[in-house]
Computed example of a mutant assay.
Amino acid sequence: MTEPTQTPEPGIHPAEQTHAAAGADVDVKAVAPPGSESILDTAVLENPFGADIEAKAQEIIARYPFSRSALLPMLHLVQSVQGYVSQEGIAFCARQLDLSDAEVSAVATFYTMYKRKPCGEHLVSVCTNTLCAAVGGDAIYKRLQDHLGADGTPLGHEETAGEPGTPGSITLEHAECLAACDLAPVLQVNYEYYDNQTTDSAVELVDALRRGEKPAPTRGAPLSDFKGAELQLAGFFPEDEATYRAEVDGPSQAVETLRGAQLAQERGWSAPVMKDVPLPEVQK
C-alpha cells in the first residue's frame, strides 16, 4: 500500500492542484497533450445511408403514432445496409427519430439480434439452452467452432469465418432458447429453422453455405442472406405478389408440434371450461 495522496480541500479557497496525484502503484502510460482529440469530442461521422435508405426510414416512422416507436425496425434497416449496427448507424437512427445517441445505443446493446460487429453473409445460431444442449446442441456448437476455426483455434461466439459480408462468410453464435424444443436440437441460419440437427448435418449445412448454396430450411421462408433477412425484419418486401410469395411463403408447422392437438382430437380430449370468476375489487 502507498500513502494516500493529498486531495484538494473543498471550499472557496483555490487549491494548488485540481486533481489527486497518482500513487506509486498507478501505472500511467501516457497523458494526452493539450488540444488532442478525446472520446468527449463530437466527431462528424461518415453517413453510409443514402437517400433511398432515408426514404425507407421515413416510411418506417410513418407506421407509428410516435416516431421513437420505430427504433427497433430502424435498427434492422441499418443492419440490412452494413451487416451490423455501427456507430454511424446509431447516429443515423438518432437523427431520424430525434433521439440521443445514448438512447439508441441503450436499445442496440440490449437485444442480441442487433450485432455490434460486422456479420458474415450468413448468421448461424446454435441453440444451447437446456433441452437442445442435453440432446446435442452443445456438441453441435463445439463441432462448428472447431470446423470453422483456423490454425487450431476454435471460432468464438459472434466471430466470423471469412471476411465479414463476403460470399461464404459465416458468423457463429450460441443462442438461448429458439422456441423449438419439440424439434431439438435446432439451429437457425439468418433466423430460419433447421430442425433435428446432428453434428454431421450441421457441418454439411455450413459447408453448403460456404460454397454459396442455400439449403432449404426445415420450416419457414426460403433462405436469404443476413442482410436480406434484416431488410424483411425492417418490414420491406417485394411489391410483386409472385416474388413476395416466393420469398416469404413456407411451412411453419411440424408434425411434432401438432402431435398433441392431433391426439386430443382423436381421443376427444378438451380443456376444461373455466368458470367466470368475478375480479377482486380494487380501490379507486
Rank of each mutant, 00 (worst) to 15 (best):
P73C: 01
M74N: 00
H157E: 12
V248C: 00
S80N: 03
I170V: 06
A271C: 09
P34M: 08
Q188P: 06
L205S: 01
R245C: 07
E192Y: 07
F226H: 03
P280H: 13
G89C: 05
N129K: 04
H147E: 04
P14D: 06
D41C: 12
L97E: 11
D249S: 14
C93Q: 10
A57Y: 00
L123M: 04
A139N: 05
A15I: 02
V44T: 15
A184F: 03
Y111R: 13
E88M: 05
V28H: 09
F236H: 11
G152Q: 06
L233K: 06
E204D: 15
G149C: 06
D195S: 15
L123V: 01
Y111K: 09
R68G: 08
D195T: 15
I170T: 02
C177Y: 00
K29Y: 13
L233W: 06
K142P: 07
M74W: 01
G156C: 03
P164Y: 09
Y193K: 08
C132T: 04
F236G: 04
Q253C: 11
H174T: 10
K29S: 13
E159G: 09
S100I: 08
G152R: 03
A133R: 14
A51K: 13
K29E: 13
T18N: 14
E121M: 13
T199N: 06
V28D: 09
L258Q: 11
L155H: 07
F66E: 15
S201F: 05
T160G: 06
L183Q: 06
S169R: 11
S224Q: 12
S201P: 06
E266K: 12
K275T: 10
A102R: 14
V81S: 08
T153G: 07
Q6R: 14
G83Y: 02
E88I: 07
R245T: 14
A161C: 15
G220H: 03
A24W: 08
G120L: 04
G120C: 03
P33N: 04
V81E: 05
E121I: 04
Q253I: 12
I60P: 08
T130M: 14
K29M: 11
E213R: 07
E192N: 09
K29D: 11
E256M: 02
A24N: 13
A261C: 10
F236D: 05
S67K: 15
S67A: 15
N190R: 01
G212H: 08
T128N: 07
A161S: 15
D101N: 15
A134T: 15
A91S: 15
T130V: 08
L72V: 11
A51I: 09
I53Y: 00
A208E: 04
V135G: 01
P14L: 06
S69R: 12
G165T: 02
D101H: 13
L178V: 07
G23L: 06
G23P: 03
S67E: 14
V248K: 00
L97C: 10
K227S: 05
A261R: 12
E204C: 10
F237D: 04
A261F: 13
Q58C: 12
V248P: 02
P154I: 05
M274F: 09
M113E: 14
F226I: 01
G23I: 05
P73H: 01
F226A: 05
T218E: 05
T18Y: 11
A184V: 01
